[in-house]
Design a binder for these strands. Sequence first.
DNA 1: GCAATAATCGAACGACCGTTTAATTTCCCG
DNA 2: CGGGAAATTAAACGGTCGTTCGATTATTGC
Lengths: 199, 199
Amino acid sequence: MLQAATELAAAQGFETCGLREIAARARVSPAMISYYFGDREGFGEALYKRAFERVSARVKLLVDAPGFAERDGLDELVSLHVAALTADPWLPKLIASELLEHGASPLRSRLFRDLTRGPLMAMIGWLEDEQGAGRLRQDVDARWMAISIASLCTFPFLILPIVGEELGLASGPGFAEKLVAQTRHFLADGLRARTEVSR
Amino acid sequence: MLQAATELAAAQGFETCGLREIAARARVSPAMISYYFGDREGFGEALYKRAFERVSARVKLLVDAPGFAERDGLDELVSLHVAALTADPWLPKLIASELLEHGASPLRSRLFRDLTRGPLMAMIGWLEDEQGAGRLRQDVDARWMAISIASLCTFPFLILPIVGEELGLASGPGFAEKLVAQTRHFLADGLRARTEVSR
DNA sequence: GCAATAATCGAACGACCGTTTAATTTCCCG
DNA sequence: CGGGAAATTAAACGGTCGTTCGATTATTGC
């Protein structure tokens, strides 16, 4: 039931798909959703909670993988971000949907508190550590760094299904790797031509 | 009427606000919308057409401003992008809303064709020219450059109203300038600390 | 095996939506 | 001024949505 809802929400967003549709896909009656989750909002909350926990578990898995600490921090951060979004391709859409939603529903508030206080704050803290260690430039606010990194890693997932075809950029399985490579490149050296190579 | 709809759509997105609500704000009866625009889709089309034309006009104004060609191309590109989004703050939301919408409505298709074939293609073409002139690095696909620039300039508008408060970053009038500065910095040199300065 | 309880369903309810219709007002021009 | 066209409206229609209700079926504990 939650699985069916997740699939549907991934494809078209939670707000736009009706409870009847979800119930039909889960092969149950629409009344079951009210029975188990109370109302639509409670159902959505359960859905998002499950999603967030799945992503958290996946991130933890990657961070705890052997050899993680030895590799380059910035590169791994990018990989981690992209990997999390790739594993659950509906996540960017879900986040974006809620970004656009207005009126402070408790669900929405909680999701964003979780996201900002959790991954985002961790990322900023880590960036500041790297700045302190001299591995990242110190003339840029770590919070802005985090926003830029998140932008580079997230926004392409949103627009590529749309503009990718017209641009000749496939959004298939190789996309994530290309995105990681491009973003690493970009983060390291910018886009301008230069004579001296960094580091 | 279109004005009222634009204000409302800017605040909460076109898909989520009812025709009755728009009509009430414009102080007319809901029937007027059907009378003048046929159905909801026709109304949305008119709305988007007006929005796109307004943005186009504004961009043209900036490009035609005196001294534009003399200034640094990449910096101006960023300024232009951010200025277009700042002048109509609902534009990112509008685009994002439509990005998330599914089912190929003619409106949606047209909006994206306009956006990709217009500004995006122009940007890619210009980036390629700059690459050819040696001012931009040539080991990165111009299409990926364009995606990265668009990501850096657009995504912050989406997330800052949400995470800005918690991060202590105000989304007020100074935001656009900060974003431009940060993005220029970033595009030029990346984020890594370096000993040799570019160019 | 049999109550008691949980799970499930089809049908119906009320609310809201976009749209239509029929009637009324406003406007303009001969 | 008057009559026909355009503009505007309130009310109603059909449809979909989330939700509830009464009844039916499955599960469980003893």
